[in-house]
């Protein structure tokens, strides 16, 4: 095998990899969007007073958080057909990403809500605010800056987990590199380029998120240390 870096080959496969990148970004975006809502459901489930629902949600969240995303991916993709449900690889991937990151986000939400001082709730009660006003005007605006760093981390996290989707055949960046590699027997360029593409996307995103945190914190009048 030729070990020299070949620029001509790198440029030849670049369009294919960039096309894969588009799918990777879509997968991360859609998966994250689903996770935001599933996380909300999990959070509400853990805060409800109905003991059975509360307990069950906690156990499910704990289970999903403690087991590998990769194994869950295979579970959803291969087990569903046994029950006559056919998921495409893409749909199975979105469900798994959404569930897995939903459990992480529910923890972020929970922590953020708990970070709002108890006195704020009491003040709302003392002023006889409605529940929606209490949440909408008082609690959530204070919880949001607290939740933001965690939410940002998991956005970058979900993006970095998307290469796993290749293992059930979702066509994204990693899969494109695998395909190129197995057709040409050259792994140096595709895998290195995938790494660089990831760096190019995740570093500025992380930086931008940090900027956003300070902006939001400032707007809320909460100075960051």
């Amino acid at each position: 095998m030729n070990l020299e870096w070949r620029w001509d080959f790198a440029f030849e496969i670049l369009p294919q990899l960039l096309w894969g990148t588009v799918y990777t970004l879509m997968a991360a975006g859609i998966g994250y969007f689903i996770a935001i809502f599933i996380g909300l459901l999990f959070m509400l489930g853990q805060r409800t007073r109905f003991y059975v629902v509360n307990r069950a949600t906690r156990e499910v969240v704990e289970f999903i958080r403690s087991t590998p995303l990769l194994v869950q991916l295979f579970f959803v993709f291969f087990v569903a057909p046994q029950f006559g449900i056919k998921f495409s690889a893409w749909n199975a991937a979105m469900i798994t990403l959404g569930l897995h990151y939903g459990t992480y986000l529910s923890e972020v939400y929970r922590g953020a809500l708990e970070a709002v001082p108890k006195q704020q709730w009491e003040a709302c009660k003392a002023l006889n605010f409605s529940v929606s006003r209490t949440y909408g005007k008082i609690i959530l605006p204070q919880a949001f800056p607290v939740a933001l760093p965690g939410m940002g981390n998991y956005l970058v996290g979900i993006f970095k987990d998307t290469p796993m989707l290749a293992t059930i055949g979702v066509v994204e960046l990693m899969q494109s590199a695998n395909t190129v590699g197995s057709l040409t027997y050259r792994f140096l360029e595709p895998y290195t380029m995938v790494g660089i593409i990831f760096l190019i996307i995740s570093l500025p995103t992380a930086f931008g998120l940090r900027k956003l945190e300070t902006v939001v914190a400032k707007r809320q009048g909460i100075s960051k240390k």
Binding site: L3, L188, G195, L199
Partner: peptide, 23 residues
């Protein structure tokens, strides 16, 4: 730190297994 946190674990794994030994 930024390099290893900025790229994906799976990519690092493939790179170390498939590319590094050849290099």
């Amino acid at each position: 730190i930024e390099f290893f946190r900025g790229t994906s674990l799976l990519i690092q794994l493939y790179w170390i297994y498939y590319v590094l030994p050849l290099l």
